[in-house]
C-alpha cells in the first residue's frame, strides 16, 4: 500500500502506553478516526481484555480446531493401539476375546483426551507464532506492569499528527517502536 512512496511516506511504528482501559479505547477510536485500519494497530496488555471491551474486531480462535484435530488423531491412535496391535501378535488372556469393546472405551477416552490437550497446547503457539524465531517484534516491557500498549503503524508524514491527537487521550507515553507486529 505504501510501497510506492519513498522517504517521508515510509510507515513508522509507534507505541502509545495507557494505564487504563477507558483512555486506551478512546485512543483506538482516535486512531481509527484518523484512518488507521485495525490491522495496523496492535494492542498489548498485561491482562486479557475482551475485544468488545477494547472495541476491536473479534475473531474466533482457531485453537478449538486444533483441539478437534488432536482429539481425532488421539482417537485414531487409540483405535490403532487397542484394536490394531493385538492383531499383530495375537495373545489370549483370561478367556477374553482378543478385541473387546468395553475396555476399549478407556483407552480411546484417554488417548483422545491426550491428543486434544496436546493439540490445544501446541495450537496456542502455532496460532500465536510463538516462540519468535526470526525478526524482532514490537513490545514494551511496561505491559508487564499492567499498561495497555497500543502499537500502530502510520505513514511517516502523518506521524506527528497522530501523536498529537493521541496525546490528548491521556497517553502516558508515545514513542517510536521497532519491530514487526505479528
Amino acid at each position: 500500500m505504501y510501497g510506492g512512496y519513498q522517504g517521508r511516506y515510509e510507515p513508522k511504528t509507534f507505541v502509545a502506553l495507557y494505564d487504563d482501559l477507558d483512555p486506551a479505547t478512546q485512543a483506538l477510536d482516535v486512531l481509527r478516526e484518523m484512518g488507521i485500519e485495525d490491522r495496523f494497530i496492535q494492542v498489548q496488555s498485561g491482562v486479557p481484555w475482551r475485544p468488545d471491551l477494547l472495541g476491536r474486531p473479534a475473531r474466533p480462535s482457531a485453537v478449538s480446531k486444533y483441539a478437534l484435530i488432536g482429539a481425532f488423531l488421539g482417537f485414531l491412535s487409540a483405535i490403532a493401539l487397542y484394536y490394531g496391535t493385538p492383531l499383530l501378535y495375537p495373545l489370549y488372556v483370561g478367556g477374553q476375546p482378543l478385541l473387546s469393546v468395553p475396555p476399549g472405551f478407556i483407552v480411546i477416552f484417554e488417548l483422545t483426551m491426550l491428543g486434544m490437550l496436546i493439540a490445544s497446547f501446541l495450537g496456542v503457539f502455532f496460532e500465536s507464532l510463538l516462540p519468535p524465531v526470526v525478526g524482532k517484534r514490537v513490545y514494551h516491557p511496561e505491559v508487564s506492569d499492567g499498561a495497555i500498549a497500543i502499537f500502530f503503524q502510520v505513514p511517516g508524514h502523518l506521524a506527528e499528527r497522530v501523536k498529537q491527537a493521541l496525546s490528548q487521550t491521556g497517553a502516558i507515553e508515545i514513542e517510536p517502536a521497532e519491530g514487526t507486529f505479528l
Binding site: Q44, S128, V138
Partner: peptide, 14 residues
Amino acid sequence: WRGTEEEWRHLQKA
C-alpha cells in the same frame, strides 16, 4: 510472550 490480543485470545481459548 508479549500479551498481544491474538496471544491472549488463543491462550484463553486453550
